[in-house]
Write a protein that binds this DNA or RNA. Structure first.
Lengths: 148, 148
DNA sequence: CATATTGCGTGCGTCGCGCACGCTAGACTT
DNA sequence: AAGTCTAGCGTGCGCGACGCACGCAATATG
């Protein structure tokens, strides 16, 4: 039996998942980083930054995409010099996707931008409150209903 | 200067905005409601439920979409009997988009499902903590950096 | 050694989207 | 009152991303 707490969170999530919101976030994050970095290619960079060099299949599995999509995105990023394909020494049919220095720099820039942006919006909050909120949000997302 | 609080929230948002997560949420919400209700058409129903009968242009403005997209989605929903086009009595060139009873029932079902789903994941939280979290999340989304 | 399997890239069809155009109806100017 | 401009809607068109299925190379398996 849902109470108003559930509805309140649901409304907030609805606002957050709105199409325009998503585009705007990515727009700001990737501003000035070149044409290759956009809403489409960002998950590839982000995924590689999390896990390190990885095969296309594994990466596709993580970001919830078909392997063909990862291949095409990786090609675009490779042409822009943000990503490098290197042969897997242990398996000669596999090619590992790895970030170049430029790719690492780009993803680090976006991370800093997003974090700073969030901090700005929390500037007026009591410091302890912001900290507990961050921890609760993390717990909600990880142990929440949308991870399985 | 970002601290770990900003990064923690950023990571959580990143997980939440992942493609697979989004699809999965909509999948569960719209399960069994017919083919017409999916990730694409849902914002139209949701927007109409919030504001009541409305013109296509106004609705497009709210959900961050071109008018043509609203038109096509409305047509699909109209064929499924969830939406009705009625002439605007005050302006004969305008057509108001309004939910039918079936459309209202569908959107109410999804609302209850999402709220219940969220409540389930918060069942183990201390009750007061969940309430303050909901209020903080609401404030974060509304007054946050992604609303302008 | 022969066959099945894995991993990658590519062609094809599908779908959603934005843009631009046409059409109708209201608003406005003279 | 008539002509012109603007607002609102629907539709054709091209673009881009996606999933699927196929082909090719390399490995695993019997």
């Amino acid at each position: 039996m849902p109470t108003d707490v559930g509805h309140e969170i649901a409304d907030a999530l609805g606002t957050l998942l709105k199409r325009g919101t998503r585009e705007q976030i990515y727009r700001r994050l990737t501003e000035g980083l070149g044409e290759a970095v956009d809403e489409v290619t960002y998950p590839v960079l982000s995924g590689l930054a999390r896990t390190g060099p990885r095969s296309a299949a594994g990466l596709a599995d993580e970001i919830g995409l078909d392997r063909s999509g990862v291949t095409r995105r990786a090609t675009r990023l490779e042409e822009a010099g943000l990503l490098r394909r290197e042969p897997d020494p242990a398996d000669r049919r596999a090619t590992l996707l790895a970030l170049t220095d430029a790719g690492r720099a780009a993803i680090e820039t976006t991370r800093q931008r997003l974090a700073a942006h969030i901090e700005d919006s929390l500037a007026s909050w009591p410091p302890g409150e912001a900290r507990t909120f961050a921890r609760q949000l993390h717990r909600f997302v990880d142990h929440g209903p949308f991870t399985a």
